[in-house]
Design a protein around this nucleic acid. Structure first.
Lengths: 398, 398
DNA sequence: ATGAAAGCGCTAACAT
DNA sequence: ATGTTAGCGCTTTCAT
């Protein structure tokens, strides 16, 4: 292996000088610089990362922890795992802009060795990015003692750790407001997921707030599923069983998989979507744009989530003193036709944050929670009304 | 930061002893071990990765190089980028089994700094995994001088570097044999891609071999596209223009995107698939299973590709003497209905390697290239004939 | 503008 | 069974 010493000797200078040349520092005579560079090139010298890290007391590596999935590729159920890949791309972009590296660790769900692995990881990185719920918060706390940690897609209320997440609450609110204000829906059925999940809690809150702000609107029933297509089917069946005689006019599902399941159950029973019942999901998984009717849903900026998380982590590494903040990124309303918009509709509308959906964030656009997204609400039916400034929309599917 | 010295001092032993305890080595009295472990726990000591790497002269990190994609998520055109994520999962699994880590680098296509970045990366890892065509082979060669490199999905003929790739040739052969033997197709139209891509070369070869082994079958025309849906549409239009009066009875596309494009063009023109013209793709991207008719294609074992590449790399790092080999992994024929199989067909059949498709691999099943996949060929129509041992098939889409 | 030298935290001979 | 110590390859003061 060619070392700095080899280069120094060969070029007839000291290691300090070689180091200076490598890092493009000043105080090196041009002639010297040239000579050193020539030797570096000739010898094919590449600095040893470990030695650099040790000497600088900084590894310039950040760790990214994901959940391992042995699931079959493209299983609808696991579509949202794909989001991790997207988040990772964002992180990758953020990281490499600064010349740092990204160290990946896949954790397998149940494993008791996970903490040992994370602990160990903490000795190899300067900071870590962890997906929400990937690591129990008890372990999180212990990790935080060692290295800065930023949680991605966690609960915005978290106080002990930095969080970068999407505005689930406003997304959900926008969806419901759209159903009410544009499509005149009043009687809602809520297909919810496990109670403890932070993002679902936000979505639930968004739904409830908008409903209660609209007199005459109400939730006539709900079902707690497990986020799978199958459990969506069951939700649909349960809905038909208990409300078959007086159907709701809209179903709001906690995620796209369940919405797809509901759609199946309703179609099976001959209930028309959106004519009899409007239906919306959440997440914007790929199959949603291919269902019949295509699914109206909310899209989270996964890539930006990764980028921001990365920037936040860097920031924290520079200033460890900062107290933990949550950063809530805006989502997009994805209008297709399951909500009642005309067939062929395909637009994305930025969702403005409703009050209370952002924590610690500065310029929150704080709209009235009752009418969370006037622009988005109106855009579909017949173009923007009242000259509202809905931004130009774009088509999604290619 | 808590160091080994802190632990040693606190426990009243030498650093060597602490190191022994950490690595679970023998020759430590139980009492000592206990005491040291207690101190480690109490102080929250975690070994510094950089120092370990430097001292051991081994980083226990392998680098994975992918292409950066700024493309919109879920753009059909970029669906195969998703495969990288899948390969990466495989690599992740392989790597963590051995306690090593995975360092990711995203490269952006055109960038001239890429070599500098890779070179630099080589100072941080013990070996690298690179996707085929991600790095020009001139650079590859220079990289190989520094660290062991394994190329994923490259050309099996490569001589200077290890390659782990999928059996494109046999996959293509199986596809064509299926069209001929099961569906009686004779007149083929070939929608090819750029000539220089190694995997496409293999696919072309598979096609040609099977055709020429079947008297009466021939390629009546071809089109060289660029692997995009759009270029598939153009291929379809070109096909209609030049062969509109006497259509081929099968179209073989170099990838799924182009097959989807062809499907669009043909549908547009009122040509029925598969009744008028059978159509097959390659890659098994997700939208293929949702097209109408669903697309018959070939699936590559991306995850295993990653796992094997990883194992191969480890192997090479242990024994640098080995001369480069190619490892060709078997693919699966994915039968849906665009080939002429009945609507609702959804099965995957292992593809046995045809002669010449494997290089340096040991037990190649070397079937007659003329009838590359008897079992697969017959399975669709009415189940296996002649008691052939086609393995049990499974349904794909959930 | 350049050099000398003291670490960075750990491992692994080698010694006891 | 345990301790001593010489590196690993680089960065970075502090001299010159």
């Amino acid at each position: 292996m060619v070392t700095l010493y080899d280069v120094a000797r060969e070029a007839g200078v000291s290691t300090a000088t070689v180091s200076r040349v490598i890092h493009g520092q000043d105080r090196v005579r041009d002639a010297t610089r040239l000579r050193v560079n020539e030797v570096i090139e000739r010898l094919g010298y590449v600095p040893d990362g470990a030695a650099q890290s040790l000497s600088r007391r900084r590894k310039e590596v950040i760790g990214f922890v994901c959940v391992e999935s042995r699931a079959r590729q493209y299983e609808v159920e696991n579509m949202n795992l794909l989001y991790y890949d997207e988040v990772m791309r964002g992180v990758g972009a953020g990281v490499s802009d600064s010349g740092w590296s990204l160290l990946i660790t896949y954790l397998n769900g149940e494993n008791g060795q996970n903490f040992a692995r994370l602990r160990n990881l903490s000795g190899k990185v300067d900071g870590m990015l962890i997906g929400h719920a990937v690591v129990p918060s008890s372990l999180l706390a212990r990790l935080t003692e060692r290295v800065p940690v930023v949680v991605i897609a966690g609960a915005p209320g978290e106080t002990t750790v930095d969080v970068v997440t999407a505005d689930n609450r406003s997304g959900s609110a926008a969806l419901v407001a759209h159903l009410i204000e544009v499509h005149g829906r009043r009687r809602f059925y809520h297909v919810d997921g496990p109670a403890h999940l932070a993002d679902l809690r936000e979505r639930r809150l968004g739904l409830e707030r908008v409903i209660s702000a609209h007199p005459g609107c109400r939730v006539i029933g709900s079902y707690v599923g497990e986020l799978s297509v199958q459990s969506g089917v069951e939700a649909g069946e349960s809905l038909l069983a208990s409300h078959g005689t007086s159907l709701p006019d809209a179903v709001v599902a906690a995620n796209d998989q369940m919405a797809i399941g509901v759609l199946r159950a309703l179609s099976e029973a001959g209930v028309g979507v959106p004519d009899d019942v409007a239906l919306v999901g959440f997440d914007d998984i790929y199959p949603g744009c291919l269902s019949d009717p295509p699914l109206t849903t909310v899209h989270q900026p996964m890539r930006r989530l990764g980028e921001r998380a990365c920037i936040r982590l860097m920031d924290r590494m520079i200033r460890p003193g900062l107290r933990p903040r949550a950063e809530v990124l805006p989502v997009e309303l994805v209008l297709r036709s399951s909500c009642g918009c005309p067939p062929g509709t395909a637009m994305r509308l930025p969702v403005k944050p409703v009050r209370g959906s952002r924590f610690g964030s500065t310029k929150s656009g704080a709209a009235d929670p009752g009418k969370p997204n006037g622009a988005a609400g109106s855009a579909c039916a017949a173009g923007p009304r009242r000259g509202s400034r809905s931004r130009p929309t774009e088509t999604i599917e290619s």
